[in-house]
Design a protein around this nucleic acid. Structure first.
Lengths: 302, 302
DNA sequence: CATTCTTACGTACTGCGTAAGAATG
DNA sequence: CATTCTTACGCAGTACGTAAGAATG
């Protein structure tokens, strides 16, 4: 019995198939199959029910899963606590929201590369809901995105908040007055897709006055929304700091509204239950390099 | 990092040298050296201070020891709880007292061989103190011997008690009367060596009346003491059941004494701190096959 | 019939034992 | 100078990838 066998078994169960585990572990199906078979031979026990196509766990396999995760957890904790950072190798797949990409992601990548020179990163940018879905399917190990959801199966770490405001070009003529949702809904709104974190928040904001706005567009990208806004096509909800220059230069103007939404909190989220893991370490680095407005909140993971 | 490396590291620390670990693990010094070196390379950390001849742990090494024992403990627990018994392989070194050898040891060996066909046994017979010393030095993993010592670093399991009595040949003329220590001390005593469990007990018994007996001999073996006794050379303290036949046939007779000592409890003792381990499993088998007088006592390990 | 796991086979590697070497007390 | 660890070298076993095969839904 080896750690590698246990790790392979663990991911096979976690991802539901030998093929998926092979991809995750950067090995071939064949190798995964052999490792599991070797583990079964070492324990003289069937771990998977092979009468069906999908790899279904036997009762013994289910029992093993608990031991495997405990042992693997200890071994990664060991590597982090005792090993030098350069001893940490492997691949971390994480997802980021666009605002992270356009702000401190480059710094994060640099810091990771310095601290963990032997770690390879696979970074994916997508809308928040998509990232969270990937996280739950274990396709990603870490997500840096807006959110404050406290699900029991996720550990989260606050990365600070970002001030979003309604913006439009001055020539759209909204001026300095303070708009209610109803009033703002008169203007064409440049929104984000449903899987964006903002979708629900803005919908709620309009709905608080039973206002129905007309969306000129639903973007998958803040940058695209900003471009459309700067082109004078409508009003959109944008991160202030990212468009400071445009505001100063008069190419965008903040639209004052009644009951403005709170600043958006960004979090690092990763699967709960691991005391130490590379994703958690990276989350903490992200918190350090983040220049988002840090808020008072328990400093560690929740 | 592999389980084998951790195991090798563990035993190197536990036994204090690469050579001793090599012997324990049935490998060469060279292999042990390489495994440790590989572990150090995997963690990018020095685990042993090699400036001195003996392998002294570095602080990092000391930290690792805790993780290593926890991981190895989990992995053996896993093997016992999930693996089939025939999956358990390896060598168990255990020590037994002579009375165990001459009573149910053969049965124990049979039962172990049936349950764990792939386990090899290295059994050593010696006097109790010697066995306990070997146990503390981790040269043995299990001891089946008389005793009731409750040391915090040992787990013990009661194997039952054995009735010992003073015996002599009838022709020595002790008859049916009841002897005090003083009176018995008049006769030549065939005793056991100091490292025998009985040594202290009998010494105390005589000393309770400030009697000083003359030891005709100090044996390392109960069988030898019995032979000398049956040869009419003196009085000795022998297990009754082992010499039932001799008593019935009149070749030995029990000598009644005042304040006879309690029956001697036998225990299985193994290092504490392992939730599951082969030695513990064997201890429980020993309890099952033992035909010593079982006493009311918490059933499990203490 | 596409997906998923297994089997076969050749290769490359790595871990081990033997034996010799270095260093320590 | 004996003990203890390290290094060198050659062998053997094994773990992997490629590719073909079997079975399932």
């Amino acid at each position: 019995m080896t750690l590698q066998q246990l790790e392979t078994f663990f991911w096979t169960v976690k991802l539901g198939s030998f093929a998926a585990a092979a991809e995750r572990l950067h090995a071939t199906q064949s190798a995964v199959s052999m490792r599991v078979r070797e583990l079964e031979r070492a324990l003289c026990v069937e771990l998977f029910d092979r009468t069906h196509r999908a790899a279904r766990l036997t009762p013994k396999g289910r029992e093993l899963m608990d031991y495997a995760s405990r042992i693997l957890d200890l071994s990664t904790e060991l590597e982090h606590r005792i090993g030098a950072p350069e001893a940490i190798s492997g691949v971390v797949r994480f997802g980021v929201a666009e605002v992270v990409t356009t702000t401190w992601l480059p710094r994060l990548i640099t810091v990771i590369a310095e601290r963990y020179p032997n770690v390879r990163l696979e970074i994916e940018e997508a809308l928040t809901a998509e990232l969270m879905a990937s996280l739950h399917q274990a396709e990603l190990e870490l997500v840096l995105a807006p959110g404050h959801t406290r699900t029991p199966d996720l550990s989260t770490l606050s990365l600070g908040t970002v001030d979003f405001q309604w913006m439009a070009v001055p020539s759209l003529g909204l001026g300095d007055q303070t708009y209610s949702p109803h009033e703002l809904a008169e203007y064409p709104i440049i929104g984000m897709k449903e899987s964006s974190f903002h979708y629900a928040a803005l919908e709620d904001w309009f709905m608080s006055e039973h206002a129905r706005c007309r969306y000129l567009a639903r973007c998958k990208s803040v940058a695209v929304a900003a471009s459309m806004t700067m082109a004078g096509m409508g009003v959109s909800y944008l991160p202030v700091r990212s468009y400071r220059q445009e505001i100063e230069q008069g190419r965008l103007a903040i639209v004052n509204v009644k009951n403005p939404l709170d600043p958006v909190e960004f979090i690092a989220a990763c699967p709960a239950g691991h005391s130490y893991s590379l994703p958690r370490a990276i989350a903490e680095l992200a918190r350090e390099v983040s220049d988002f407005q840090h808020i008072d909140r328990p400093d560690g993971f929740v």
